[in-house]
Simulated assay, not measured.
Amino acid sequence: MSEPSSLDLVVKKLCDNGHSIASRRFSGDAPMPSVDTLSEIVEDLRSVLFPGYYGRSEITPETLPYYVGSTLDRVERQLADQINRGYCFVCDREGKELCKDCEERSRRTAREFIAKLPTIRDMLLSDVEAAYDGDPAAKTHGETIFCYPSIRALTNHRIAHELHRFGVDIIPRIISEMAHSDTGIDIHPGATIGKRFFIDHGTGTVIGETCIIGENVRIYQGVTLGAKSFPKGEGEQLVKGLPRHPIVEDGAIVYAGATILGRVTIGAGAVIGGNVWITRDVPAGASVVQSRAMHYAFENGGGI
């Protein structure tokens, strides 16, 4: 009898589910969430939220209701399936009765999410207004929809955040990471962001899970709204879900490269200059900038 080939051994090792992490790739008979399908769902939603800009470009006022209706019908069915897969993905089936109502809960959540789309669209239109008003390079509102990574990332975020609020597992995080990959803007779906939010340029921006951002806030590329420390509980495991990210109040501006860490409050109308490091509260209306560089001139050996 011939010895197994090296390829056979590799296949056997890769298919071995003995490792505790690798074995969670499968949840009984339940399939995994599909990144490809979720990408299609998000693009369908983008075409409904901004019809004509995305999806079919030849939409007319007469055909718009048919297009939106058929698209949402498809999205609702696909999203319900993906939500159910997300529940199964995180479900610990050992020592626990199988969830009997997950499919119905998934369908109900998908319907409730669809009902929120007009509110999501209103929020996004306010973001478009903020991008147009806040950038002198923007010639039209449509340009910001087509071209600005801020609007693309915020579309994903406002979709993901609503699903997060409904308690959907894993799916919101996948949707937010799609935008992160596309734009370089990393917004956790748990972050709460008010109307008229604009991220100018955007690349390298990080907004953490428990951030609360008010209305009319503008930030620039490379800004981090992050956590300063991570408390540990039993077994030295990080404690999850604690409020640990900044609160940025209405009308604040944070310039490029600024780092704001911890559960600190940036007051309404405050201005945070570029490349500063903030770990304490900043009062409303205050400005925080780098210290001016000091210049020295020496003559005839002075200063030696």
Rank of each mutant, 00 (worst) to 15 (best):
S70K: 14
Q221R: 05
D250R: 06
G241K: 00
R46I: 09
V168I: 02
A191P: 05
G285L: 10
F198W: 02
E76C: 08
R93A: 08
G251I: 11
G55K: 03
P33K: 06
I219R: 02
V289E: 10
G303P: 01
K100Y: 08
P31A: 14
I41T: 11
G301Y: 00
I212E: 11
G269R: 11
T203V: 15
G214L: 10
L238H: 02
G214E: 08
H164K: 10
V289W: 05
P283L: 10
G241R: 00
D29W: 10
K232Y: 01
E177Y: 00
G202V: 13
L261I: 07
I159H: 05
D92S: 06
D101S: 15
G18P: 09
R152I: 15
G235F: 04
G55R: 02
I187V: 04
T259H: 14
I213D: 09
T279K: 04
G52T: 03
V128L: 14
D92P: 00
V35E: 15
N275Y: 04
R292W: 07
C102T: 14
E236W: 03
Q82H: 11
A284R: 05
I266S: 14
A137V: 15
V254T: 09
S5H: 04
R165F: 03
C102V: 12
L9R: 12
M1S: 12
L45Q: 11
I272P: 15
L225C: 03
H188L: 03
V254M: 15
T279N: 06
V264H: 07
L242G: 01
V254Q: 08
G18H: 10
Q237F: 02
K100I: 14
V276P: 14
V206T: 09
G18K: 13
N300K: 12
V276K: 14
L117E: 05
V217L: 07
L238F: 03
G194I: 07
A286G: 09
I213R: 09
F197Q: 12
R158L: 04
D16Q: 05
E299C: 03
G52S: 02
S6E: 13
P243G: 01
T224H: 08
A110D: 12
E209Y: 06
T265F: 07
L79G: 05
